[in-house]
Design a protein around this nucleic acid. Structure first.
Length: 471
DNA sequence: ATGTCC
């Protein structure tokens, strides 16, 4: 069926396909690419899920995923709506953490190669297993308590807790809702980075856009930072697989346009069980990122010695971009509670909706670019709940499928480009690096322009990679 | 995304 388009302005396009409706925040070029790739059809499929409030929204980095597009947000009526594991994705609580090093980029440059070597010898990448396997009792604590487990082990500071999305802990987890298989994968892969778009980067603050917010966040021109992108590894993947498998056999899920759109009604026993398991996987994701932050601090201490002061290596923020959560938003002039699915989409709460440490400023919104390109730190803009339910893009978004990338780009070309840009690299797998190369992704500056142009967030700082560790 | 196909 064909898709009709209506432009509201340069960065807001409405799509209609029969009775299905959706909105994409992005230029007509971004919308055109989403139609050509099939991502727009996936977004429109979401509109027929039970209990959608408003419209499914595609963000500027929208691209095709399994069932639901990556870079999408959809809110549900908590009383008569549904929840779909596909709207969260397989990597439950995938997210990004950014930490200061307190070291200037020039000094960091001298230690870059040994630092990457030290990091890669302590943080397994790709499919490599953990060097710090959890016991059965530890994994159960992690799933129930999230970041409080590393905190209890002196692997997190109090400051880390308050600068982590949801304070690094989601409630309502009953361990019986997570399978034995999921626990086993979780025990074996704790503290690992993973593959795909996951990475660890040493970055330099290249440009401060919003000087006041930069100061609050601890972003200083030409200082070095470390960004970590990873999620809940095999545990989250197994939870998603288990629940999709269980619910797709239910009668109402048998004739969907895509089995990944399988859903369950909020308030049902099945939905309660999925939410409990999803929150448990999210807690594991928070603990996993925190454990890697701890490893990074230890590496900096070992490699930089007296040039590094552990007190300076503060967290800027640890944010999630694959989660469904209950939140209050102003919709059509009134405040109401909604279940918001975000798949490859990051929260960008406006200043007045943020309590605690970043109250009145807004929490940092972390938007990594592709490998070999810039990353942005932004903050949510006032009244963005009416635009995107206070949601922002989570990255650049793919423009080329993995297969096409492998066929058209050589590892040599990627490595030459990294050298030309003076970016030190450690690739666990060269083919995987090709799939993640800059050429396979949209231009992050274009995505940034669409984010700010659509009034969902404003820029704080631009960071550029100095060194990268990839699965 | 993924012990990258039980």
């Amino acid at each position: 069926m064909s898709i009709d388009l209506k432009s509201e302005n340069l960065y807001t396009q409405y799509l209609t396909r029969g009775k299905d409706e959706a909105k994409i925040l992005g230029t007509s070029d971004i919308v055109k690419r989403s139609i050509d790739s099939g991502a727009a059809d996936q977004l429109l499929n979401m509109s027929s899920l039970p209990g959608v409030i408003g419209l499914p929204i595609g963000l500027p980095d929208i691209h095709k995923g399994y069932g639901f597009p990556i870079g999408s947000v959809v809110a549900m009526d908590p009383d008569n709506g549904s929840i779909s594991p596909g709207g969260v994705g397989y990597d439950i609580n995938c997210g990004v953490a950014l930490i200061s090093t307190g070291v200037d980029a020039k000094t960091m440059r001298k230690y870059l190669r040994p630092l990457l070597d030290d990091l890669s010898s302590h943080i397994p990448v790709g499919t490599a297993r953990s060097r710090n396997k959890l016991t059965e009792s530890q994994i159960r604590t992690v799933v129930e308590e999230g970041i409080y487990w590393p905190y209890s082990m002196d692997m997190a500071t109090e400051d880390d807790l308050i600068k982590t999305d949801f304070d690094g802990h989601l409630f309502g987890v009953d361990e019986v809702n997570i399978s034995k298989e999921a626990y086993e994968r979780g025990m074996n892969y704790f503290g690992t980075l993973g593959s795909g778009n996951h990475f660890l980067e040493v970055q330099r603050a290249e440009e401060l856009i919003d000087h006041e917010a930069s100061e609050v966040y601890g972003l200083v021109q030409d200082m070095a930072y470390i960004m970590i992108h990873t999620g809940s590894r095999g545990l989250g993947h197994q939870v998603a697989t288990d629940y999709l498998e269980q619910i797709r056999a239910l009668p109402h899920n048998l004739n969907l346009p895509d089995p990944q759109l399988s859903h369950i009604m909020l308030g049902s026993r099945e939905a309660d069980r999925y939410i409990s398991a999803m929150n448990g996987a999210a807690n594991y994701g928070f603990a996993n990122r925190q454990f890697i932050i701890y490893q990074v601090r230890k590496s900096l201490t070992r490699v930089l010695g007296r040039e590094f002061d552990a007190e300076e290596a503060q967290l800027i923020y640890n944010i999630s971009h694959n989660l469904a959560t209950f939140e209050d938003h102003h919709i059509e002039g009134r405040k109401r509670r909604l279940l918001v699915h975000r798949k490859g989409a990051t929260r960008a709460l406006p200043p007045d909706a943020v309590q605690g440490y970043y109250s009145g400023v807004g929490h940092p919104v972390l938007v990594p670019g592709s490998m070999g390109s810039a990353s942005y730190v932004l903050r949510g803009k006032e009244r963005n709940d009416a635009i995107s339910m206070s949601t922002c893009s989570h990255g650049a978004g793919r423009s080329m499928g993995r297969k096409l990338a492998r066929e058209s780009i050589s590892p040599e070309r990627v490595k030459e480009e990294m050298k030309r840009m003076n970016i030190e690299y450690t690739f666990g797998n060269e083919i995987a690096a090709v799939e993640e190369s800059r050429e396979s992704y949209k231009n992050i500056d274009e995505v940034y322009a669409a984010i700010t142009g659509s009034n969902i967030a404003t820029g704080v700082a631009k960071l550029f990679p100095m060194g990268v560790l990839k699965g």
